[in-house]
Design a protein around this nucleic acid. Structure first.
Lengths: 234, 234
DNA sequence: GCTAGTCTGTGGTCTGACCACAGGAGGACG
DNA sequence: CGTCCTCCTGTGGTCAGACCACAGACTAGC
């Protein structure tokens, strides 16, 4: 029957259980590869395959050498893993671009509403991004990078780590398409000015606590960009 | 200098480029491990580490033997990868439970609204789940499994593969907690009846095209469960 | 007490060797 | 001629062993 658990799955499940049961937590060191190999009765290469998965998913980081920083350490940093997953799925055509954009719309809308109705919101980082985007001589790539950071800072300000990670991942997964879209715009300078104005209006609405306006502005902002660049019909 | 790209990253990036450039697509066979190893000038073990990542993320499936079904084949099935990622991140405490629940609320709300306003919606599968949940003698685990399928079928009916995958992943990541929550309920039978009624009301609102009611019902439905089971305060 | 060299253990990688498996090619047989 | 059966090939799955680079600890020497 299916009583053939693959060796690397044994390792992965063992480590997952250690995480769930609290034997492992953020900052802890994993046993060394050779130790895990011996303990679980599998080859070291199988251990490495499992560790590789955890590393790409952002659960651990590895370092060579010795000392407190060496070895595999649990660091739950979800954004990297989410970005990798979404980017690869889009590349493999598992996620249509339109679905990614629409999902971003849903999440951005939720973030804008949540922030506007949160009296303890902190939009300082977002304001810093707005300032940075005013700099003259920015290339489209630089501008869009700051644009991404602005949206991400809003997501992080909302306090929901899952949504922030998903937003970062969604953005990463379509980064190349967004950049390609900017090249299709005849007058990038004018477009950028429009984006700047939309950003300021959005943050202003959030600061004012106007959830409805913030929701409307963010949806228009995103929809407009994808329509003008022709990335997504509609 | 950080000019030390790790061998498995070379493989991963090579394959990602093949996917992006269309040289690889769903259904295609990857070169054999030994061939990739020779072509890229890395060891076979490094190739395997990269393939393992792609497999866990749901991008490929591998099979031994020979013939058309053997080898590594591109299959972009996002739900498995998303589930694994979210489950592990929750286990590693990268995602607080409350954030997962809140994100689910946002997505379910979006799904309910989208379905209600979509004239071409197909809720047949959801109705089948409703029927199945009426069966007598269901254990809590069985009931909750059907519950998950119901919500997932709604997400899939909305047509957004990204949201469907995220919902599946979010649900998986908190599956054990949801089940544990059911054990805390004094009178599960009554609770299950309440859930049945809420489900039917939700689907009815969707079928009636009443987005506002569907939104309100789904939010109450989810919030209620987590409050009664004491999993999330508030 | 300080410095410089050595030692130890880590991940990173490669090589080679098996195994189980599934299908195809070919021959043996009716 | 058709059918069945055996062998062969190529695949992923796994393991063992061997290096390497690295970073810190440890130690001998000054």
């Amino acid at each position: 029957m299916s009583d053939a658990p693959r060796a690397w799955q044994v390792v992965l499940e063992h480590l997952e259980r250690d995480l769930l049961d609290g034997r492992l937590g953020p900052g802890d060191h994993l046993p060394s590869e050779r130790e895990l190999s011996a303990d679980l009765g599998v080859g070291r290469s199988s251990v490495r395959e499992a560790l590789r998965v955890l590393e790409v998913m952002g659960l651990i980081r590895t370092a060579t050498g010795s000392g407190p920083q060496a070895g595999a350490i649990v660091i739950a940093t979800p954004q990297g893993g989410m970005s990798a997953l979404l980017r690869l799925q889009v590349a493999a055509q598992g996620f249509p671009l339109a679905d990614v954009v629409q999902t971003r719309l849903v999440l951005e809308d939720a973030v804008a509403r949540a922030l506007a109705t949160d009296s303890r919101r902190d939009t300082a980082e977002a304001h810093r991004m707005l300032e940075a985007m005013d700099a003259a001589g920015l290339t489209a790539a630089e501008f869009l990078a700051l644009d991404a950071q602005l949206h991400l800072s809003l997501a992080e300000a909302s306090g929901n780590t899952v949504i922030a990670a998903m937003m970062a991942g969604l953005r990463t997964s379509i980064e190349s398409y967004v950049l390609a879209g900017s090249a299709r715009v005849d007058d990038w300078h004018t477009t950028a000015d429009g984006l700047r104005a939309e950003h300021r209006a959005l943050v202003a609405a959030i600061d004012a606590g106007d959830a409805e306006a913030a929701s409307r502005l963010v949806r228009e902002h995103i929809t407009d960009y994808y329509r003008t660049t022709g990335l997504v019909s509609g």
